[in-house]
Design a protein around this nucleic acid. Structure first.
Lengths: 227, 227
DNA sequence: TATATTTTTTATAATAATATAACAATGACC
DNA sequence: GGTCATTGTTATATTATTATAAAAAATATA
């Protein structure tokens, strides 16, 4: 038989965690827990679970922010548990990448069914918060980049750009797309920004910036990160 | 990519269908509808939508049964809309393959967010559209061309041209048609452009450019890509 | 506030892709 | 074979695109 799906519960209420531990384990799931946003992110990164149950009302950080940070590198299904029943919160959470949103107090049977549903659709997609390609190691959690185990110091925008490429290895990313992703909708015609930052990145990651082997130009279309 | 996602609404209440039609269309979705289980299944089969919204209280058949029949062949996300708020119905529907379950009356903003969420998870399983013909592999998403697993570097126009041929394997494409597709309406008489680029392509993809086996000339008419 | 860092602008050099013309090759037809 | 219409090839001018440096502005840091 296959080993059980692991579910990470991030919630600050001890009772909820205990309740979920019993419920989940008696239904054949492996259980992991965290009581703060920070611990939750670390737990998700160090031992990637198959599904995450996230409370919106965490003590150290807004749950929506946690969700967004998580979604930068983690594609596993996330079910939100929250006392907030207002539409704004629900829409925001779902648009930040949540797969489902349940109001507390919840019915355990319904939660289990929603867990099964989420695991069903998103079943085969193991990933890690660290992207490896060629000699590169891009840690999406700590936002650091290593090339052949040596740290590469990048500015915020340079990092965003490289991470975007690393998530789309081999594909041509159009100027328009890159500008929208990094700078936003209003900057899609600022092609020059992109050129400058591509040059900066090349200077930092290419052996010979004049003859790029990673960040390749696709003239008239965009750029491509080759593997 | 650019054409709107189509959503099929299966509900017997005319007002709900009308409401959803307006809501969905004003949010950029294509709308299709059915008022009975039977019609819904036929509609889903004849013109597969990207997502299905299914009411559980249909006149001709139990919604749960409809869902099961649908799931026998259809993998697209299904969101249940129902007046039943009891756990048994919810669990049953989710276990029958529904992706989400919303209670009527519902908040349109929330429904739209749940639609986005459902479409997101099911669309990122991105099988990139790759054209295969003979030893060729043309990946339309990443704009890459491989011949016998070796990358072929093409300029923008060369790629567009080859992709056009690959999408129409075996068909004769007239000079006029090709020029209009690649260069635009104003260039349909620039036959010479085409000759030059055909020559360039042949140099890159043919074994013997003098005796083309892929890009064949149809004298007086145009060119054909043979498979 | 001073200082360093990063991003945005501007200017210009370098490169690549395309358009165009001139000529060569092919094949149909007489 | 010779003529004509069509197609293929190559070289080069033109245009478009990209790279890079360096200054100015904005932002963060001490």
């Amino acid at each position: 038989m296959t080993n059980p799906s692991e579910i990470l519960v991030i919630d600050d209420e001890r009772q909820i965690r205990k309740l979920l531990e019993i419920t989940l384990q008696s239904n054949g799931y492996a259980f992991a827990e965290a009581s703060t946003s920070r611990d939750g992110l670390v737990a998700a990164a160090t031992k990637p679970p198959d599904l995450i149950i996230l409370d919106l009302g965490l003590p150290d950080e807004n749950g929506q922010t946690t969700l967004k940070k998580l979604r930068e590198w983690c594609g596993r299904p996330v079910i939100i548990l929250s006392v907030y029943n207002n539409e704004e919160n629900i829409v925001h959470a779902l648009d930040s990448g949540a797969n489902d949103y349940l109001i507390k107090p919840f019915r355990t049977g319904e939660l289990l069914a929603r867990i099964r549903s989420a695991l069903r659709t998103n079943s085969t997609k193991g990933e890690s918060p660290v992207l490896h390609c060629k000699g590169f190691e891009i840690d999406l959690l700590s936002r650091t980049v290593r090339k052949n185990n040596e740290m590469v110091r990048l500015t915020s925008t340079q990092y965003e750009l490289l991470a975007l490429f690393a998530k789309n290895v081999g594909k041509v990313l159009t100027h328009h797309y890159i500008l929208r992703e990094i700078w936003g909708q209003d900057f899609t015609d600022q092609l020059q920004y992109l050129r400058v930052f591509i040059a900066q990145l090349r200077k930092k990651i290419e052996v010979d910036p004049n003859r790029p082997e990673y960040l390749v130009t696709e003239s008239g279309v965009g750029y491509r990160f080759v593997a």
